[in-house]
Write a protein that binds this DNA or RNA. Structure first.
Length: 352
DNA sequence: AAGACGGGGAC
DNA sequence: GTCCCAGTCTT
């Protein structure tokens, strides 16, 4: 690929000056502890700053060091993650902490390749850790940087395609300065999060507008060009609120797959050709129930790739005291409020 | 190369 | 309501 239309130092100098004036004060910026930087970067994958901050604080209070995280049971980690989404991140985080302890004596590795070898850490997150924690030059290419670079150099085409992605990494490499890589990494992500936003970018306040090819062409609103999206299907589910002595039966989902390790009311997807009632009957049989469930209401929940309507049924469970397996619990509503239920069944609590 | 994976903020 | 993610791993 060709070089830059201006010296890279022109860009980094303007950006760093802006960061000195307008950079945000975020909890993880008060430390250079690689453990804290790593934790913040994992939480910030696909998740916004405002959603992350309370989770970050709670998590660090429970696990102040990577050793304490490694020593914790996975259940405790998942409990502190419940509500953040992408739960595989929490499992990888725990696995990686164990690896740091077993293979690196509890000392967080400093080499890019070694950091990338940790579960859940790819090239961009490893670059962020190297830059921010160790102040050594390493390129980053997350969603914010991707957007800034597509606009800065007027790069058309789907930025997630292999060709454009490769180009963007080489641009990121060229632009990352030897000097102050810590500040540069924070600055370019801040610029993308605040000024160079997905919609209505504030080019008037942007320190890079004088260098920005998209701005000069007036196409900043059209970049980056997103790939085509698939329509999101609507899925029907039924869930059973089995109660006994004021407590409800919940079960733990398998660790692998969607919402892995989180808890839920016994539930199942309604096949296209079946009714909710038929699905409920199959469910009651599976849980060893004889009583007829009564409809309670419906809650709706949206995921990125599908939406779901959960039809709730209540059912007395006095005949199924035999359900005592490790992954089932009887809990009162007050306990359920703090239990790591997944999002759609948290909503169901509102109907109890 | 494409699909899977949650939830919330911004508008 | 719609759109967008501070990505990584699996197939």
């Amino acid at each position: 690929m060709q070089g830059l239309p201006w010296p890279a130092e022109d860009m980094s100098r303007r950006l760093l000056a802006w960061y000195g004036r307008s950079g945000r004060d975020l909890p993880w910026r008060r430390s250079r502890d690689p453990y804290r930087i790593w934790l913040s970067e994992i939480m910030l994958q696909q998740t916004g700053v405002t959603a992350v901050i309370p989770y970050y604080e709670r998590f660090l209070a429970a696990f102040p060091t990577v050793m304490e995280l490694a020593a914790a049971p996975l259940d405790k980690v998942l409990e502190l993650w419940a509500g953040l989404g992408y739960y595989r991140r929490a499992r990888f985080l725990h696995q990686a902490a164990c690896k740091v302890v077993s293979e690196h004596g509890g000392c967080f590795p400093e080499k890019l390749e070694t950091i990338m070898a940790l579960p859940g850490v790819g090239r961009s997150t490893a670059g962020a850790i190297v830059s921010i924690a160790f102040d050594r030059k390493a390129p980053i290419l997350d969603g914010n940087v991707r957007r800034v670079l597509c606009r800065l150099l007027a790069i058309f085409g789907d930025p997630r395609s292999g060709k454009v992605e490769k180009h963007l990494w080489s641009i990121a490499e060229m632009l990352t300065p030897e000097d102050r890589p810590h500040d540069y990494a924070q600055a370019i992500m801040d610029l993308g999060a605040t000024v160079c936003s997905p919609r209505n970018p504030d080019c008037e306040s942007c320190p890079l507008s004088g260098l920005c090819q998209a701005f000069w062409q007036g196409v900043q609103e059209q970049l980056p060009q997103r790939g085509k999206r698939k329509a999101v299907p609507l899925v029907q589910q039924v869930a059973l609120l089995i109660h006994h002595d004021g407590r409800y039966l919940v079960r733990r989902r398998p660790l692998d797959g969607m919402l892995g390790g989180l808890w839920e009311f016994p539930s199942t997807t309604v096949p296209e050709e079946k009714t909710s009632e038929a699905a409920v009957r199959a469910l009651t049989a599976g849980e060893g129930l004889s009583a007829v469930p009564q409809p309670l209401g419906t809650v709706r929940h949206a995921y990125s790739h599908f939406r779901v309507e959960v039809h709730l049924f209540t059912c007395p469970g006095d005949s199924c005291g035999m359900i005592a397996e490790e992954d089932h619990r009887w809990l009162a509503p007050a306990q359920l409020a703090d239990w790591p239920l997944h999002g759609s069944h948290k909503k169901a609590l509102g109907l109890l």
